[in-house]
């Protein structure tokens, strides 16, 4: 195995393209090193993108935020403005692993690793985030929802990597939330995850909503019916119940070592409605 730490986007793209699929990008490394150690992957070259300035830092961007690909969960949690604007996105990322993992793990890595249970992804998709993909043909903006394509698979072509993620500007009466179900309180992979992003008008009526489920399908599930159950309501009990029912109906989980179909189906609704209630409460305050 070779190790490279390019200093520019172009250099990284060239290294990636030259490796022709035998390269792996190192951002936080918390998935990559586990996979290396377990012998699940044996890349010819590992490309550390942390020395590339465009992958670093969080910047305010036209009311929204641009988050570099190598920004760790801990850095996101420490960014007060980001937390205020997108608490759900940040709490999703912050649920990934321990304090130690947070010091390294990145939201973009979580996205590219494409686990169906990724905690960093549902709220990010609910937020309508996009990402900048650099590749041999230059850079393109892609909705983050289009990156994961199935368990462990993403839509990045040979030579491509994600440079940053952009969260849009948002109105005042808007917020988001992410909840997951795990057997312990920490250190587990989600059995079910639910991210909800919503906008209220001045009267407290929900005008826009997005409900995304994780860990109950091969990739995240966008539950339009659950969102529709919230829009036009004050996110009251009836709306939350309808949201829960729609989420449970949309879930397509499997039985595996972490949970059962029955359990995941039921809890999809529970978490979607609870996340919606939290997001609404945040939007109101």
């Amino acid at each position: 195995m070779r190790y490279e730490a390019p200093g520019s986007v172009d250099e990284a793209v060239k290294l990636l393209a030259d490796a022709n699929g035998a390269a792996r990008v190192l951002a936080g490394g918390t998935d990559l090193l586990v996979q290396l150690r377990a012998g699940m992957i044996s890349p010819e070259v590992v490309i550390n993108i942390k020395d590339i300035s465009e992958t670093k830092g969080i910047t305010a961007d036209g009311g929204g935020f641009c988050i570099g690909a190598t920004v760790s969960g801990a850095e996101m949690g420490e960014h007060a403005a980001l937390v205020a604007a997108w608490p759900g996105v940040v709490e999703g990322v912050e649920l990934i692993g321990s304090t130690q993992i947070q010091g390294r793990a990145t939201m973009v890595g979580n996205l590219c690793n494409a686990s169906p249970a990724a905690d960093g992804v549902p709220a990010l998709i609910a937020a309508g985030a996009t990402c900048t993909v650099a590749g041999p043909n230059g850079q393109r903006e892609v909705p983050v929802a289009d990156i994961p394509t199935g368990p462990g698979k993403n839509s990045l072509a040979n030579g491509e990597f994600i440079v940053n993620v952009k969260l849009p500007a948002r109105p005042g009466n808007a917020s988001d939330a992410y909840l997951r179900m795990i057997p312990r309180t920490e250190m587990d992979i989600a059995i079910v995850g639910a991210g909800v992003n919503l906008v209220l008008d001045d009267s407290g009526t929900c005008t826009e909503a997005s409900v995304i489920l994780g860990a109950v399908g091969p990739k995240t599930i966008t539950v339009d019916a659950a969102a529709a159950a919230l829009v036009g309501t004050k996110v009251d009990e009836a709306a939350l119940a309808a949201c829960a029912a729609a989420a449970s109906a949309a879930a397509t989980p499997i039985d595996d070592k972490r949970g059962t179909v029955v359990y995941r189906t039921k809890v999809s609704g529970v978490l979607a409605s609870r996340a919606a209630a939290i997001a609404a409460e945040r939007a109101r305050s």
């Binding site: 057997p183 312990r184 309180t185 920490e186 250190m187 587990d188 992979i189 070592k257 972490r258």
Partner: peptide
């Protein structure tokens, strides 16, 4: 230790 779940401090 990820899926063999011994109690963690926050539990």
């Amino acid at each position: 230790f990820l899926d063999y779940r011994v109690p963690v401090a926050s539990d």
